[in-house]
């Protein structure tokens, strides 16, 4: 049976969540809507198309300490970081939740990435289905869609005066008190249609399009700002470095992008991917060829953020069209 929560009860529920655990939700930060820790329920934004960056950073932070080094009697001791406290992320769009299933594939593969696994275990994912499609969105062509519930524990769908509630997992059910709910009397609103992109068979076509001048031409205008990787809900490459501050040492990992000129440069100066076109090809090959071959799904959920954010209009939708049109390599 479909259930309903009034807007007022949703706000009370969010307040309860905020008091019991860390609540992360879309909120206004200057002129952007971003997922941030909520201290006042009024700050939660319920009406938005999608956030400027994905909620990925709450499971895979931009920078995260892996361990601290402590010195005891001249001996070094390593103190591994632990994730304590539970988090509820409210307001995930289905594409971004689908993106989390993509992070799971490499990070939870044995041996699991311990911190990511802890974030995952201690985080409840609450979705908000899409009633309108973002102009650049193409989620339905990428195996997701406005009502996709992948990775979500609870899904809300906005209706008149409130929301339809779908508790998907046990974790979700345990967090949703029946007292706040009533039987749904409204019908589910129709899901919006998203613009199609030619994703069918793209993996085989990428293999054919691998060689040739195309990637260099696309790369010509890239200024390696890395914004595509930073806004992407699925990009998962990282860097690891030691930081020393007033005698305290920690090892930290941080987001990295395959478009960075030094991404593959090794000690001694050799860089097997020094060429900009080869780096551009790596981005799209990883998304549309290698990841699907390694793990199954295409490594893109069609959220459209990289299309919106790219300052030089490199557009994965156009790239898929071009690749589909390209023939066998010369």
């Amino acid at each position: 049976m479909r259930q309903f929560i009034s807007k007022q009860n949703l706000i009370s529920w969010l307040r309860q969540q905020m008091e019991a655990r860390q609540l992360v939700a879309p909120t206004q930060v200057d002129d952007l809507i971003l997922f941030r820790r909520i201290d006042r329920v009024d700050d939660v934004i319920l009406q938005f198309q999608n956030t400027a960056t994905s909620p990925k950073e709450w499971l895979f932070p931009k920078t995260e300490t892996l361990f601290h080094v402590e010195r005891k009697d001249g001996k070094a001791e390593l103190i591994p970081a632990e994730i304590d406290g539970e988090t509820v992320i409210f307001g995930l769009r289905p594409c971004d939740a689908r993106g989390i299933t993509m992070l799971d594939l490499p990070y939870l593969a044995d041996p699991a990435d311990t911190l990511y696994r802890q974030h995952r275990q201690k985080t409840v994912l609450v979705g908000l289905s899409c009633l309108t499609a973002c102009p650049e969105c193409f989620c339905e062509s990428m195996g997701s869609g406005p009502e996709d519930t992948a990775a979500l524990d609870i899904m809300f769908t906005e209706v008149r005066d409130g929301y339809l509630v779908q508790a998907i997992t046990e974790k979700g059910r345990s967090l949703m008190p029946q007292a706040l709910l009533s039987p749904a009397e409204t019908v589910k609103p129709p899901a919006p249609e998203t613009a199609p992109v030619p994703s069918e068979g793209i993996t085989a076509k990428m293999r054919q399009a691998f060689d040739g001048p195309y990637w260099g031409r696309v790369a010509d205008r890239c200024i390696h700002c890395n914004v595509c990787a930073y806004v992407c809900p699925t990009c998962y490459c990282f860097d690891v470095r030691d930081y020393t501050n007033k005698g305290s040492v920690e090892r930290v990992r941080s987001w990295e992008s395959c478009q960075s000129p030094g991404f593959t440069k090794i000690a001694g100066g050799h860089d097997p991917r020094a060429n900009k076109g080869a780096r551009m090809r790596q981005r799209f090959s990883h998304k549309l060829l290698y990841f699907p071959e390694q793990f199954g799904p295409l490594h893109c959920v069609g959220c459209g953020r990289c299309v919106r954010a790219c300052p030089v209009n490199i557009d994965i939708r156009e790239i898929m069209q071009d690749v589909q049109r390209m023939g066998a390599p010369k």
Binding site: P106, A109, D239, E256, F263, T264, H286, Y290, E293, Q294
Partner: peptide, 10 residues
């Protein structure tokens, strides 16, 4: 096989 830095082909 997680940081994807040494990824070459598949």
């Amino acid at each position: 096989g997680k940081c994807a830095r040494c990824n070459v082909g598949d």
